[in-house]
Nucleic acid binder design. Structure first.
Lengths: 204, 204
DNA sequence: ATATTATTGTGACAATTTTCACAATTTAAA
DNA sequence: TTTAAATTGTGAAAATTGTCACAATAATAT
């Protein structure tokens, strides 16, 4: 089992590095990444060492080298294909979200039970859910985004898994039950916001 | 400093408990919560003990008692008011998101620079950003949701902080720089999805 | 050329978090 | 009423995670 905290930090590093690169830097010091991301410099060095990226004493790390190593860690040679289940508020926003492209992630199909939502105005085709099997047969789908209402989330989730999907980014406020070999990441907007409120309003 | 993992677990417990309650239960055992949430039973008990919730040996815990304790931990007597900056894809989806109400969270105002988006069709009023000060003077705002494009995120964030906001839920793919007393929670959709893909596609 | 300074890389340490294991206790059964 | 079974509550142990401190070394200044 691999620490997700570590993996998460890598993504944070990459975000900062892409910013620093845009600003014109080619090399960075551990404390620079630390300043950008909020992690300690020692931890940054430990992480880079674990990533097998070498720096030069007194010269720092090369940004491109780090970024390549991170990309490689996430196996980003090819485009990753995902599907989107649910074209309500959140689903539609996700469908229009441009940032995925930068990561080489493509939403190849969306599903919604409502016929009115099928094939409407997005450049992602929208099908009824029973088309899922066909899509997964046709493409190699790496993950699904689940953006359906809470009451149907488990059922839709089960179907996605039946179609061979092993990774789910879940927006429904539900604790999904899935087999061991399926990975679920819960994006709980209310919980997240509640935590922010909690931390912001408690006397420091 | 308090562990956010613990706080996060509490929210997960609450979600499961509300589900179990709907299903008709009034009492639960630690292993039941464990099964629902994926944490270990021992950890659940430790957390409940830390929350000062008492169970009965052989009788389990009362759901309502746990839920009250969790709500109290998050200080949910009154309605929490938040503002929303940015009415693009994600901002609009958030504006229409119904689940916040259940948590006693209310979006009292939204901001967008685009005049076309101001006051359009939502039941949340949309103002230009310079109205922010007025809003924060008028209401006690507990947090802000930042859903503006990456290039303007830091600037908007600075303004929010200037208006006295201490908590930010950030959707922009940017590592915000904020003073120590401001809490930021980053919702990185691309990172999240990338992690899902990573875990789902690596050979287990 | 030499000395000085800055920075990495890492082993040892500290802190935190989780699990383990079992006594205490309650309930149910015999 | 006694025994058996189930479950909490929690110290102690284990595991994990992060920090500290400093030797090694590369770059720069003298």
């Amino acid at each position: 089992m691999e620490s997700t905290a570590y993996t998460k930090r890598l993504l944070t590093y990459r975000l900062s590095l892409s910013h620093l690169k845009e600003v014109g830097l080619t090399h960075v010091f551990s404390y620079l990444i630390a300043g950008e991301t909020g992690f300690s410099a020692a931890l940054v060095r430990k992480d880079l060492s674990r990533l097998k990226v070498k720096g030069k004493r007194r010269g720092g790390y090369e940004i491109d080298t780090i970024m390549e190593a991170i990309n490689e860690h996430f196996g980003q040679q090819k485009t990753n294909k995902v599907v989107l289940a649910g074209m309500g508020n959140i689903g539609s926003a996700i469908a229009q979200y441009k940032d995925f492209k930068k990561r080489n992630i493509k939403i190849v199909a969306a599903f919604d039970l409502d016929p009115a939502k099928q094939r409407k105005g997005y450049d992602i085709p929208v099908y009824p859910l029973n088309k899922c099997r066909d899509i997964t047969m046709e493409h190699t789908i790496d993950a699904a985004i689940l953006a359906v209402p809470a009451f149907s989330a488990q059922a839709v989730c089960d179907q996605l898994i039946q179609c061979g999907i092993r990774g789910i980014m879940n927006f429904a406020p539900v604790n999904l039950k899935v087999p061991e070999n399926v990975y679920v990441s819960n994006v709980r907007l209310s919980d997240e916001l509640q935590q922010v409120i909690y931390h912001a309003t408690k006397e420091s």
